[in-house]
Write a protein that binds this DNA or RNA. Structure first.
Lengths: 253, 253
DNA sequence: CGTCGGATTGAGTTAATTCAAAGAGTGTGG
DNA sequence: CCACACTCTTTGAATTAACTCAATCCGACG
């Protein structure tokens, strides 16, 4: 709630991105410094629902410091489809957002910083170590994989499977950054927003979450979800996201 | 039907890729030569349904010479979801295909060539002119945009809209390469395959195509579709893909 | 002429939707 | 501290889009 200073946001964003990069490829201290140097204020603050403008001009990019941001489409008749989520540390490239019916907007209170220096450095391969470049590529690759999975989710999974699948993905994403307590998913999304991600109605999301709760797989409350049985959830999702979670065996207390 | 020689396939693939690249950024003759130099035989021939193997090892990539290739998931229970299509001239990167439940397979008789030289050259920025690099980036960017649109299609469009939307996208893709006669879409897909792209059942695809025909928007036969009214089709798709088609004003004869 | 892989049709079923109303939780101002 | 307002969630009932299953049709090909 307290008003974060710009410098705080810079630090948070840089730290998050750095954690994300090094979760793929270990970075040298020099690389870490480089990452920090890429961002400057001022941070832009986005209220929930506020749109995040990226200029199609070359190399425009923003990094998320706080909050969750959606990329997707808002059709004229009110239908909405979220194509992807950007969490703190994620970089949103104008190239990915530019399209007639595509938009970027904040789902929660959020703030972003200019990251065009980063994008420029990486795309010109100037002042970037090979490891850093490789880490960045893997981040991008993971993004593409998420997009592909999103397609599969929407195309062929039932509401029940879809929901399980998404929650697992988000959990995996958060625990990769090391932030999450085991089994606890920070989830600042309303059921409306979940519906817009999963291509379902909010009402049906609600019923599906109840099913998942009855099955002992998910305990949802606005702001967070508890996933007491990751294995079971993976099973419910029907897809093999499970691999990465195998470390924590199903606790049967 | 006649057995294409390997050299033919190399030529075809290189020419298609070159046309695709230069549809975004005009290439110099030297660049064109460079593109041609990137591919060698032997071509791999893939029968319909045959899987295209890409080795996750660094930089593996294949270019499509003939036929249509699908990237997607085949679930254990037989459900199938196609995430993206690769047409002649398209490059399939191992990095995009690698995942537990992800696969790449031929939809028609197809042949592909090793393109790891290309991918290597581009990712190292060695022996690549800035224009060529820029063209490649735009190709990739167009791919990402298609993926995003696929998500929107599956998440929020009705069967009718979805089908119209996909046909338009394919048409736009083909006419960009200059190959298509106006209003004619080369479409070597069975209704089953369309179903696996659009996340619908084959039966429902059939009924939807009939609706579109009755509306005077699509005349489908295996192997090709005729789109007599692109404006109307764009309207039916509900999304503004229309822009690129504006050149041909609605003929009211 | 028979066969085989699509395509088409019909009938019954189901998953998810819409609409409408009511319940909870939280914050604000009196 | 209560009452109101607001947003989000929950529930019920009716509707619908899309699915499944099974039969039939059609066209290409040997």
């Amino acid at each position: 709630m307290k008003n974060q200073s710009y410098q705080d946001d810079v630090d948070i964003a840089a730290a998050s991105l750095e954690r994300m990069l090094s979760s793929f490829v270990a970075l040298s201290p020099a690389d870490v410094d480089r990452v920090r140097g890429w961002f400057h204020g001022p941070a832009l603050v986005h209220p929930p629902g506020g749109s995040v403008s990226l200029h199609p001009e070359r190399q425009d990019a923003r990094v998320v410091a706080r909050g969750w941001i959606a990329r997707g489409a808002m059709l004229e008749d009110g239908r909405r489809q979220i194509v992807g989520l950007s969490l703190p540390g994620d970089v949103i490239l104008a190239a990915d957002a530019v399209d007639a019916d595509m938009a970027v907007w904040a789902l929660t209170d959020a703030s972003t910083l200019d990251a065009s220096l980063l994008w420029e450095a990486i795309s010109e391969s100037v002042d970037v170590s090979p490891r850093l470049l490789e880490a960045w590529r893997q981040v991008r690759s993971a993004e593409r994989l998420r997009l592909a999975r999103h397609v599969i989710r929407l195309g062929r999974l039932s509401a029940y499977e879809r929901t399980a699948h998404l929650l697992l993905e988000l959990y995996e994403r958060q625990s990769r950054l090391g932030a999450a307590e085991p089994g606890v998913l920070h989830l600042p999304l309303t059921q409306d927003m979940l519906a817009d991600i999963l291509g379902l109605s909010a009402v049906h999301i609600n019923r599906t979450l109840q099913q998942l709760r009855r099955a002992g797989l998910v305990d949802y409350r606005t702001g967070r979800a508890i996933l007491p049985d990751l294995q079971g959830l993976a099973l419910a999702a029907g897809l093999s996201i499970a691999d990465d979670l195998a470390d924590a065996p199903p606790s049967r207390d």
